[in-house]
């Protein structure tokens, strides 16, 4: 039984694509067959973060418009088996996507035996974002601990509850999960950032995990490897926890409080 998971946020630049890359890689590492689709037509980024930008021959729009087959367009990840990427087109815009076309791609992926189909949503609440979430069974709401991001997430949650296929057909609602990115407990303590509790209180969505703010995330993006693969990084561990919790494991939340650094770490640690 395949599940369609949308990674969305409303606001741009909060870490949707980073989360999509690490989340799909994490699921594939667990042995599931995963496809990750970049819905951000015109501003493709996912292939960069996944490090496959030089291997894109056909893209999502080509498949939607029938110019290429799904098999031709799916890019197999070189590091993790069972992980496939469907890149966005850089030259087209979001009008190139149609509801029927997207539905066909998702149905074909399900038939091809993918366990998880991850839809990396573009920012905003317009057509691209609505198409990305329309067929979702579950949603990862990516939010920064900051008021405008939280408000935009609230807005997209409303759209999830009103404009998804499940909502329109009156089926069981989309399962919502909160992923708090760029979380910095130090700045929460000084009052510069909203705390986990504040965000959960505002959004009333259960927390799947908080990803600590980390240089490793940017480094990993630049290197074209999902941060989850960098096992020493706190962000990677947090993403691994997110995957575990998503799969139903009980994992205690980490990285939510200020870490007390010992003298040794102060001198030599990051």
């Amino acid at each position: 039984m395949s599940r369609v998971v949308v990674v969305t946020s409303g606001k741009g630049g909060v870490g949707k694509t980073t989360t999509s890359a690490s989340f799909s890689t994490g699921l594939a590492l667990k042995g599931y067959k995963v496809a990750v689709i970049d819905f951000d037509v015109g501003l493709r980024n996912l292939d960069l973060i996944m490090g496959c930008e030089r291997r894109v021959v056909y893209d999502f729009v080509n498949v939607v418009q029938g110019e290429a087959s799904l098999q031709q367009a799916l890019i197999k990840d070189k590091r993790v088996p069972n992980l496939f990427i469907l890149a966005a087109s850089q030259t087209r815009d979001k009008d190139a996507l149609t509801l029927e076309g997207v539905e066909k791609v998702i149905e074909d992926l399900k038939e091809a035996g993918f366990d998880y189909i991850i839809c990396d949503s573009p920012a905003g609440i317009e057509k691209g974002a609505q198409l990305a979430l329309y067929f979702a069974d579950e949603a990862l709401i990516v939010t920064n601990p900051e008021v405008s991001s939280v408000r935009d997430s609230d807005r997209i949650l409303g759209i999830l509850q009103a404009k998804s296929k499940r909502a329109e057909k009156g089926e069981a609602p989309i399962v919502e999960h909160l992923v708090l990115t760029r979380y910095n407990p130090n700045r929460v303590e000084t009052g510069e950032m909203l705390s986990v509790e504040d965000v959960i209180d505002l959004l009333s969505v259960p927390l799947l995990g908080a990803i600590p703010e980390s240089e490793d995330v940017l480094n990993a993006s630049n290197a074209g490897a999902p941060v989850v693969l960098d096992e020493n990084s706190a962000a990677a561990q947090a993403y691994a926890d997110v995957v575990d919790r998503f799969l139903g494991e009980e994992v205690e939340h980490r990285f939510l409080t200020v870490e007390k650094k010992g003298l040794f770490k102060k001198l030599f640690g990051k």
């Binding site: 609440i125 408000r151 935009d152 609230d154 807005r155 949650l157 409303g158 759209i159 509850q161 009103a162 505002l202 959004l203 009333s204």
Partner: peptide
């Protein structure tokens, strides 16, 4: 949620959750 509007015409309205900004 933000962007949503609820109108109880000719009657009372009870909201069990929060009414978020916007």
């Amino acid at each position: 949620r933000s962007g949503q509007q609820v109108y109880a015409k000719d009657r009372d309205l009870i909201v069990m959750g929060s009414v978020n900004p916007g």
